[in-house]
Simulated assay, not measured.
Amino acid sequence: MPLSITHPVFIRETLTGIIFCLLIYGVVFAFPLLGVFVLLFLPLPVLFYRLKIGRNSGLLIAGVSFFILVLMAKGVALDTLYFGLLLATGMVLGECLERHMSIQKTMGLASLIGAGVVFTALMVYTIGQERTLSALMTDYMNQSVSIARQLYPEIGMDQDMIQTLISSMMIVMPSMFMISFMTTLWLNILIIKKLLKLKGITIKSIEHLNLYKAPEMLVWAVIGCATALMIPSDPVKIFGINCLIVLMLVYFFQGIAVVSFFFQQKNTPMALKGFCYFLIAVQVYVLILVIGLGFFDNWIDFRKLSASRK
């Protein structure tokens, strides 16, 4: 039975969750470069206390933390809205995990909700600013690059190079957002699994993440997106390349699951596993290899999942 909002344990745990969110804010604002990585874990306090104490605690942590953020930022901007989305994501993940949804459904539903919220928020924001979305995002990119150059002046880039970079980023910005958001989902699910395990709690839907497999129909989506790149139409090509980038992340998750599966089967030492994961993170060729491993797992079935199901 959920605790009453006046119960001392409820108050203590909820305040602890809010403090964790504020600490993440502090790191993001004080150390912008480090903050990019720390921000990935903003949904975690909401998710953890949502599962531990209940829905009311998660809602209070997300709501109060967002209200404090608005006060700190002295208004609502694109960055503030993204922080709010991450806080709400903790609640969405908590609801999905409590209902024991499969990892595929959890990731899919949370991603669709996130994309829908961002699209709606951007439309409302652009109408309020009386500007086009393209102009708004271009200004945002220029501002971000300007801040980065001020913080790290050793980064030598002339104006032409900056404009080329911004133009390229504008093309793939939707997929870059989805990659960032889906990676955030995956990391928070991995960490909450470890935290709950320390508490002696097991959620069956995320117990065996190394058995993850993308829906087989996505293979046709990859083929369709690759075909779209050959069509002589810029909007179709942009749509195709953005979808293809997101699908590559999905198969990266499957490839990592295959790698993790064999690490577990062979009882690989922690040091060797850490080195291999580090190599995947920093070497683009190894990263592509893992994506290929996930994609071809649909036919080769490296983990023999089909046989085990039968």
Rank of each mutant, 00 (worst) to 15 (best):
G128F: 06
E154T: 13
Y152M: 04
L136K: 02
I127G: 02
E154C: 02
S167A: 15
M123Q: 10
Y140A: 08
M157E: 10
Y152Q: 02
M161S: 10
T126Y: 06
E130K: 13
L133K: 10
M137E: 14
Q163F: 01
D139R: 00
Q150G: 10
M137C: 04
S144A: 12
Q150N: 08
L122D: 05
E154K: 09
D139M: 00
S167M: 07
A135K: 06
S144N: 06
M161D: 11
G128T: 04
M137D: 12
I162Q: 04
Q143L: 03
Q129R: 15
D158F: 06
T132G: 08
I127T: 12
S134N: 10
N142D: 00
Q163I: 01
R131Q: 12
T164W: 06
Q159S: 10
T138A: 08
I155N: 11
E130P: 03
Y125P: 02
Y152K: 03
R131F: 01
I147Y: 04
Q150S: 08
Q159R: 13
A148G: 01
R131D: 05
M141A: 08
S146W: 01
I127V: 15
G156T: 13
M157C: 06
I166Y: 02
T138R: 14
M161T: 15
S146D: 10
M137I: 15
M123F: 12
E154L: 09
M137F: 15
A148Q: 12
L151Y: 12
L165A: 14
T164N: 12
L122H: 04
M141V: 03
D158V: 06
S168A: 15
Q150L: 09
E130I: 05
A148S: 10
I147F: 05
S144W: 01
A135P: 03
Y140I: 00
T164E: 11
T164R: 09
Q150P: 02
L136Q: 05
Y125T: 12
T138W: 05
S167D: 15
L165M: 15
L133Y: 14
I147H: 03
T164A: 08
R149H: 09
S134Y: 11
Q143N: 08
E130W: 07
I147N: 07
L151G: 11
S167H: 11
S134V: 14
Q159K: 10
V145S: 03
D160R: 11
T138C: 02
M123C: 07
R131Y: 01
P153L: 03
I127K: 15
S168I: 15
M161V: 10
Y152V: 11
D158I: 06
M161A: 13
T138M: 07
A148E: 11
N142E: 00
A148D: 05
V145A: 04
R131N: 08
S144C: 00
M157F: 14
S144Q: 08
G128L: 09
G128K: 05
Q143S: 08
I127W: 14
L133E: 09
Y125Q: 05
S168M: 14
T138Q: 13
I155D: 02
Q150M: 06
Q129C: 04
Y125L: 09
Q143D: 07
T164G: 06
S144D: 03
G156Y: 12
S167E: 12
Y140N: 04
D158L: 03
Y140D: 01
I147D: 04
Y125A: 05
D160F: 08
M137Y: 10
Q129N: 14
I127D: 13
S134R: 13
I155A: 07
Q159I: 07
A135Y: 06
L151A: 08
E130R: 12
Q129W: 10
S144L: 08
D158R: 05
M123S: 09
N142M: 00
